[in-house]
């Protein structure tokens, strides 16, 4: 039984990512004030993983900068705005204390390996194919709700090699 579960867990990672491109559900784009939020998603958690990352692209078409100051979700006891980086072979992660500034006329991308919305004290798993709702708060534009599709990570270096050199 235990082995069967392991096998099932492994399939979560090895299962048909080639189809991910056409089947990948996209976040419904939302706007709040002069801000457009698009291409959001969250990473599925591993079994018993207590934290997770969420990602979104924010474009500011306005005349003034705005700042992402808070994020929350029913699924997480705590959510924070973080930036991670690899420095040589060391993983470092920091909280953006003053929030994340989105300058006027610019686009800021939260993506794996860099800026992210950090889910902490998770109440449950983030499951591939499901959605997770988060509310993000901007200093000027205010609150907006995002429905992030949950996706599994790609593995094995740069994507999967199971399909030859695809």
């Amino acid at each position: 039984m235990k082995n069967l579960m392991k096998f099932a867990a492994l399939l979560m990672f090895l299962g048909a990512p080639a189809m991910a491109d056409d089947k990948m559900s996209m976040m419904q784009e939302v706007t709040v004030g002069p801000l457009t939020l698009s291409d959001g998603f969250a990473h599925a958690t591993l079994p018993n993983q207590p934290v997770a990352g969420g990602f979104v692209t924010i474009t500011n078409t306005g005349e003034a900068a705005d700042t992402l100051i808070a994020v929350q979700s029913d699924l997480a006891g705590v959510m924070q705005i973080h930036e991670m980086a690899m420095q040589d072979d060391t993983m470092v992660m920091r909280e953006l204390d003053g929030g994340l500034i989105v300058p006027a006329g610019e686009t800021v991308t939260l993506e794996p390996g860099g800026l992210h919305l950090m889910f902490m004290q998770l109440n449950g798993p983030l499951i591939d194919g499901e959605d997770v709702t988060v509310t993000v708060t901007f200093q000027d534009a205010g609150d907006v709700e995002l429905t992030l599709p949950v996706r599994k990570k790609m593995h094995g270096g740069h994507g999967m090699s199971h399909d030859g050199d695809s």
């Binding site: 990473h43 591993l46 018993n48 993983q49 207590p50 934290v51 991670m84 993983m91 990570k153 593995h155």
Partner: peptide, 9 residues
């Protein structure tokens, strides 16, 4: 275990 990205990856 509370590692966001590097350890699960």
């Amino acid at each position: 275990t509370h590692c966001p990205e590097v350890c699960p990856t």
